[in-house]
């Protein structure tokens, strides 16, 4: 488990992050979300012991990352994928992985078998002897992911892992992240792609130099927005919106083209009553739907509130 407690980092007069408190459990996919300059990279660097906190601490399986003598021990447990792949471009793909394998203290036999398994899985084996400089952006990103998991770390930190990947490779990497979780690994993800964070993460933390919100994507959506239902009606003329708004379970109602849009407490319980009311008034309902809020809506709402000082 990774514990982040009162974590603060100040650069001169600039606050990188302030008083972050959260935990990341085992076998969890945890996403860090935030606008540019919100302190995501600083948080990742603090969590991996690359930089030390001004205040507070991070502990990885009970070992604090600011205990420099114990840092190599922590680093054996973690793998880091930076935002830019950063390979040794003149060296072959195999040599790049071999170098990192050796830096993590793996035996040459273990490196050989692990490299082959991973490169075959990521469809890079045929290119193992080619200099990385000849690779496409997507191939470099895949190789960087292989480097990150080369030593089979327990905690995998990924900064924008799907950047530069085509849709097919992107799906492959998403599936790979899920398989890491299924194999008991913890994935800590920093991403701008809120759709990916929504699909992949068990929990997300929204930060803007401090922690704004943390929960599962579905819980955050529920906290940020009431559920919204839409009734598409053949002809909406004559509908009395005030009568609808007067219903106890309706939080708000509006008409949009030929649709009635309402925020309600529970569509499962309330839709039959609304339907009965509308049919009773002679309206012909074409179909009923629910507006699904995306994590992006939630994120934008949280960040906006933070900018307005409401969070």
């Amino acid at each position: 488990m990774i514990q982040v407690s009162g974590l603060t980092r100040v650069y001169g007069s600039t606050v990188g992050v302030e008083d972050l408190n959260f935990e990341v459990g085992d076998a969890e996919i945890f996403a860090l979300l935030g606008p540019n300059g919100s302190g995501k990279t600083t948080t990742l660097r603090l969590m991996t012991g690359m930089i030390s906190p001004t205040n507070g601490y991070v502990s990885v399986d009970g070992t604090r990352t600011d205990q420099l003598k114990l840092l190599p021990e922590i680093h054996r447990k973690i793998g880091i994928l930076p935002e830019v792949p950063g390979h040794y471009e003149n060296l072959s793909a195999y040599r790049n992985l071999q170098f990192y394998g050796r830096m993590y203290g793996m035996s040459d036999d273990a490196i050989e078998s692990r490299t082959k398994d991973l490169m075959v899985e990521f469809e890079l084996w045929d290119k193992r002897d080619s200099p990385v400089a000849t690779f496409s952006k997507g191939m470099k990103q895949k190789l960087a992911i292989l480097r990150t998991v080369m030593h089979d770390p327990k905690y995998v930190f990924l900064d924008e892992p799907l950047s530069g990947l085509d849709p097919e490779s992107s799906k492959f990497v998403r599936d790979y992240m899920k398989s890491l979780k299924e194999n008991g690994k913890t994935v800590i993800l920093s991403t701008h792609d809120l759709d990916d964070a929504d699909k992949l993460s068990d929990r997300v933390a929204v930060i803007r130099n401090r922690l704004l919100a943390i929960d599962s994507p579905s819980a955050l959506k529920a906290q940020a927005f009431k559920r919204t239902v839409v009734f598409h009606i053949e002809s909406i003329r004559g509908l009395d919106l005030k009568e609808i708004e007067a219903m106890a379970f309706v939080n708000s109602a509006r008409i949009s083209k030929d649709s009635l849009v309402m925020e309600v407490d529970s569509p499962e319980k309330n839709n039959p009553d609304i339907t009965a009311y509308l049919v009773g008034k002679g309206f012909r309902i074409q179909f009923i739907g629910e507006i699904r809020r995306s994590l992006e809506d939630v994120y934008l709402s949280i960040v906006e509130k933070s900018k307005e000082g409401k969070l």
């Binding site: 690359m50 840092l71 680093h75 880091i80 950063g86 990192y100 203290g105």
Partner: peptide, 13 residues
């Protein structure tokens, strides 16, 4: 070349 960060993430002191 951005290779420093992954390098510093290894157990090297």
């Amino acid at each position: 070349n951005h290779s420093l960060e992954p390098l510093l993430a290894t157990p090297i002191t």
